[in-house]
Design a protein around this nucleic acid. Structure first.
Lengths: 220, 220
DNA sequence: AAATATTTTTAGATAAGTCTAAATTTATAT
DNA sequence: ATATAAATTTAGACTTATCTAAAAATATTT
């Protein structure tokens, strides 16, 4: 089934929103995520429902169907592969890749993605550490902890930064925090939730709670 | 100035058509090139004229303006850089790259093209041998001869195959003719315009006039 | 140079995707 | 449990890009 660019974006948004909040996804949430108006979302929901990629009951929010999930994951796969390409091959920075990948993900050519995957040597995660779905839409889930919930003295490896805010990503670049960086929690400040951490062997620095929350680690 | 995908395609078509036939480009020619109807072309001409990228007088055909030419060349630059990428980095065949590049050429990001150019080591021609315009829209013109107009005994190097017909490109692949191949004209058959040629040191083979016409060479 | 043919434009319609404003449904609070 | 607030949908309109059919302009032929 061939979906339009707009339809693909709606589907991707619904998939991501469904991941976080359980239950159906609300019209307003989709509108906010896509910078559009609730009225436009209602229209599109009818269309996507007719095509069978979502289950939609008026006023009741939407769920993504199995077909829909497969399509969303294929778009996400493309997005993440392109991100890897931009970062590793073209030398883009962490915070620059998202918007370009947002365009590239809609290029229609299964062969292109197959060859890109091969060229990149079959990566399993994107530059943010998010897992890349395989051709069949299967995705590996790993148990991650937010830096803000780790205990003093624990050690982990950065696996994911589930946020594309450029200011955040630039800051992480600045303090030389990358995917795979080893993080040791030195101190937790009770007052404001900020943490003192060492990145690899660097001098420990403080991170605010707001930032710590966005950094996902796997324990080592 | 930001043009839509459709507008960019019209401009590119007008640029290419203007290259061949001198004088203004006709509505019908554009319609045929873009697989659309003359009525649609008329509409679009008014729009592009309002934007100042073409000069258009009703019933008189169009000419591309300097601004328009610059935009067309930037799209052509992107198209040809992506073709090089697909062929050299991803291992696509000659005949497979055109349609994908047709999509990739519309990705909006000057930085992406800059970095892609660097990654490809600043190529000057695309896989068809067509020159790649530089950032300022300047394009190198080389004097080329069609294989069909070369004399018996002359030797040349393949620089260009100004046609994206997959069947043609597959055939050239088949007979191991590539860009840069050395061609010696052994015999010209008067009856049907076919030619006997040697590609490098291979055994000479016959090519029909229709094919010979499409192969551009520079003399060596 | 008239008549005919071709090319091009206009008029009116359609589909996708979006919007605002108004109506309707569901949720919340007194 | 009713009133108020919030969320959602509908109605109607707009833009972009396209189409068909008809009208107008230009070219060609006899």
């Amino acid at each position: 089934m061939e979906l339009s660019l707009a339809e693909e974006n709606y589907l991707k948004s619904i998939y991501h929103l469904a991941e976080q909040a359980e239950g159906g996804v609300s019209t307003n949430a989709i509108a906010e995520d896509l910078n559009t108006k609730p009225a436009s979302v209602s229209d599109m929901m009818r269309k996507l429902s007719d095509k069978g990629v979502i289950e939609y009951k008026k006023y009741k929010g939407v769920q993504i169907s199995d077909t829909g999930k497969k399509i969303a994951l294929s778009v996400i796969r493309k997005h993440r592969l392109w991100e890897v390409f931009l970062l590793e091959k073209l030398g883009f920075k962490w915070d620059e890749v998202h918007d370009i990948a947002e365009q590239l993900e809609h290029i229609k050519s299964p062969l292109l993605i197959k060859k890109l995957d091969e060229f990149l040597d079959y990566p399993s995660v994107d530059p943010h550490g998010d897992p890349i779905p395989n051709e069949d839409g299967e995705i590996k889930i790993q148990i991650n902890y937010s830096l803000s919930e780790m205990e003093t003295g624990s050690v982990g490896m950065v696996t994911n930064v589930p946020d594309s805010n450029p200011a955040l990503l630039r800051h992480l670049d600045q303090i030389k925090m990358k995917l795979g960086s080893k993080i040791t929690v030195k101190e937790k400040v009770e007052f404001d939730g900020s943490v003192l951490i060492a990145i690899g062997d660097q001098t420990p620095i403080y991170l605010s709670g707001a930032i710590a929350e966005k950094i996902m680690l796997k324990l080592t």
